[in-house]
């Protein structure tokens, strides 16, 4: 009995000490900073406020919803108009990939990863390479040289053959590979017991002050941004 009492006492003393720490801290640096003790004086930066997980910003999500359709269309414009103005498949593909990056940063990478399936990314990259090789090899099959557009069995073969290479070949390869690099780098190194999942990584890199808060952080993040992200992106894309 006395043992439990003393335990409670030390607990109370601990929290007291933490409180006084927290109150005395603002005098020096305002209690801000990553390694600060928790505060509970009701200000915006108090423990209650800091305890809430990071949520995606409504402002950024709204702006990205407005901007993304324009930017995506503009990426297609740059790709399709490579023949008459600066740009082409490479730049247009990079812009389309940048649009996906923008969605990912606004709505959360995990939500975007679920929205944009691996199949899409791989199909873009592999399909682009196959189309490029195919357009190159059809003239070879017809007795010409690699990429000899005149032999393609389509009207105005030089122009549309080049457009096909730029749009369906280079553009899709670049867009697919850049999106793939983005997702795979965001996932990180995969190794048994290594950085396989995000939680292990967070414990590794976060400075440990709120290590127990981080898994809930990630979970609630996923839960909150999943409905908004894919739906909005679906609506935004023509």
């Amino acid at each position: 009995m006395s043992g439990s009492d003393s335990g409670v006492d030390t607990d109370a003393a601990d929290t007291d000490a933490a409180d006084t720490d927290a109150v005395s801290k603002p005098a020096t640096d305002g209690g801000f900073g990553r390694d600060r003790p928790p505060r509970s004086d009701g200000r915006l930066d108090s423990e209650r406020r800091q305890g809430t997980p990071y949520t995606e910003s409504q402002v950024i999500m709204s702006t990205v919803k407005i901007v993304t359709p324009f930017a995506f269309t503009y990426g297609l414009f740059v790709t399709f108009h490579g023949g008459g103005s600066p740009g082409g498949g490479f730049q247009g593909g990079a812009i389309v990939a940048a649009v996906v990056f923008m969605i990912a940063f606004a709505f959360g990478i995990e939500a975007t990863r679920q929205w944009l399936a691996n199949t899409v990314v791989v199909a873009l990259a592999v399909g682009g390479a196959l189309v490029f090789a195919g357009i190159g090899l059809v003239p070879v099959a017809l007795g010409g040289a690699f990429l000899q557009y005149e032999l393609l069995p389509i009207p105005d073969p030089v122009k549309y053959g080049m457009e096909g290479v730029e749009i369906l070949g280079i553009g899709t390869i670049v867009a697919g590979v850049l999106m793939g690099l983005f997702f795979v780098l965001a996932k990180g190194f995969s190794d048994a017991g290594g950085f396989a999942d995000a939680d292990a990584f967070d414990d590794e890199v976060g400075d440990g002050t709120d290590g127990d808060g981080e898994p809930t952080d990630a979970e609630s993040l996923d839960g909150e941004s999943n409905p908004g992200g894919p739906a909005a992106a679906d609506g935004g894309e023509p």
Partner: peptide
């Protein structure tokens, strides 16, 4: 460029992008 994507997968010990 295509090979760069595959190389990233190999280096990071993964089989799928997304």
């Amino acid at each position: 460029v295509f090979a760069a994507g595959i190389a990233a997968l190999i280096v990071l010990h993964r089989e799928v992008f997304a």
